[in-house]
Amino acid sequence: MNRMFSSRLFWPVVMLLVLFTINLVAFPGFFSLEVKNGHLFGSLVDIARNGAPTLIIAVGMTLVIATRGIDLSVGAVCAIAGAVACSIILGSPEPGSIGTVAVAVIAALLIALVLGLWNGFLVAVLGIQPIIATLILMTAGRGAAMLITEGQILTVNSPPFKVIGSGFVLGIPVSVVIAAVIFAAAALLTRRTALGLLIESVGINPEASRQAGVRSRGLLITVYTFSAFAAAIAGLILTSNQTAADANNTGLFIELDAILAVVIGGTSLAGGRYSLLGTLVGALVIQTLVTTVYTVGIPPIATMVFKAAVVTAVCLLQSPTTNATFGRWRRSLGRGRPGTRTAERASVS
């Protein structure tokens, strides 16, 4: 029991279950899945599909935040990736060919890698605070995307490109598959190699890590590059889904959703230990919240108010002040019980 409460996944999962219950009450068919034309449909599938871009970005963001950093530029990178891909496809004589789409996607990803290296350079080499360093690209990035699209909304008509955002593979939405692949890749890459350990160690205690011989510079550049790479993939999914690159609105505010997903998932903004699984739950909570707002019949535009409520609630729950108060309260309830003490410690950490 104590273990369950002290797990950092506890509150996010509770939140997700509460949202599911609300949905089920408002819309009894919420959990039903059906197969139409060999494709999976249903509310849960919608949540997974619409939540995919946020999840992909949140995975990159988790690693950045674990190093005590933050990446504000992901929304702008989304827009740039979409703009690059669409303008290449539009400029090609055969927009429908797989080759064209492949070139477009690769070009978009390469540019994102350069942008990620740039962020990493500012943070790791010049030593600029992450929030400030990525603010630069956040500001200039959308302008650059506009430059690429020449201020137009680039609508593309390319069936292979459309697959990325709205296709199906083996009945499952392609975007969900991509998100799963990125998630698994990040999990394997950090947990099967020593990357995760070193990232956490740098995030928790940079000086101790330095003295232990950890090369933090390379690590920082890696995580910022990965974050930009993930953002570009999310940007391609979003653009493909709309079949258009809109430099102004593609990925607008998605950095905030991604950070929110990470925070809900229990990874502290102060850096250190991270949980990709938590981030997954966090991203699902956010997307389910949006869906819930729809199904319950609240005007969808009010979603942001609920997001504000969730951010506030999560922050207050994680705040040291709250923890201290709770700790005192729990101590006064169960004086001297050894179990209570460990639980309280775990919730602090």
Binding site: T193, A194, A208, A212, V214, R273
Partner: peptide, 29 residues
């Protein structure tokens, strides 16, 4: 506290940290 242990990591991770850092992240123990 400030320059030695990495206090939120486990005993195991703290013990292998320097060895792992020396090998690089790509060659996990």
């Amino acid at each position: 506290r400030a320059e030695g242990i990495v206090e939120d990591l486990t005993v195991r991770d703290n013990i292998v940290l320097a060895l792992q850092a020396d090998r690089g992240w790509f060659h996990p123990i």
